[in-house]
């Protein structure tokens, strides 16, 4: 388990359903929290869609399965689960997830599964108080 002063900052801008970068980012966040490492996330541009609560799972008409049978997970559920995992209890790290407010407003994504609204000043604050930074850039 990491020293509880260890904090990682991850910046991500990818939307859901398009790239493997989202999966890798969420896996990294989960692994760090489970190790007791605090994680700051700055989600901007399309990444503010990751936690949008109005995402709906769908049936699969090709296989003829219902919504329930398909059990299709949505990114908002993964983000919510990370929010719960990152409550800082039981030796886990704390998650501070900030969604870029301008990006949220542009996309009408105000309803979020976890995190808070912020802006570049919050990213700056993250950078002043972090052990390391990973910017997951798009291509």
């Amino acid at each position: 388990m990491a020293d509880n002063a260890t904090t990682l900052t991850i910046a991500i801008m990818d939307p859901p359903y398009e790239t493997a970068r989202v999966t890798t980012a969420l896996r990294l966040i989960e692994a760090a929290l489970r190790k007791g490492i605090n994680v700051n996330v700055f989600a901007y541009e399309g990444a503010v869609s990751l936690g949008f609560t109005e995402q709906q799972p769908h049936a699969n008409p090709v296989k003829g399965t219902s919504v329930e049978e398909e059990g299709h997970p949505t990114p908002k559920d993964w983000v919510a689960a990370l929010g719960e995992l990152g409550n800082g209890r039981d030796g886990k790290g704390k998650l501070d997830w900030v969604n870029c407010g301008l990006c949220v407003d542009e996309r009408g994504m105000q309803n979020q599964a976890t995190g808070r609204r912020g802006g570049p000043q919050h990213l700056y604050e993250f950078l002043q108080n972090t052990t390391n930074v990973l910017v997951i850039a798009t291509r």
Binding site: L8, T24, L28, A31, I37, T131, N132, L134, A137
Partner: peptide
């Protein structure tokens, strides 16, 4: 390896991480 290994490297302030 796995993401646990990546996190261990990132947890060191001496690591400079670059994504492509």
């Amino acid at each position: 390896g796995g993401v646990d290994d990546m996190v261990d490297l990132l947890a060191s302030p001496d690591t400079k991480a670059i994504w492509h």
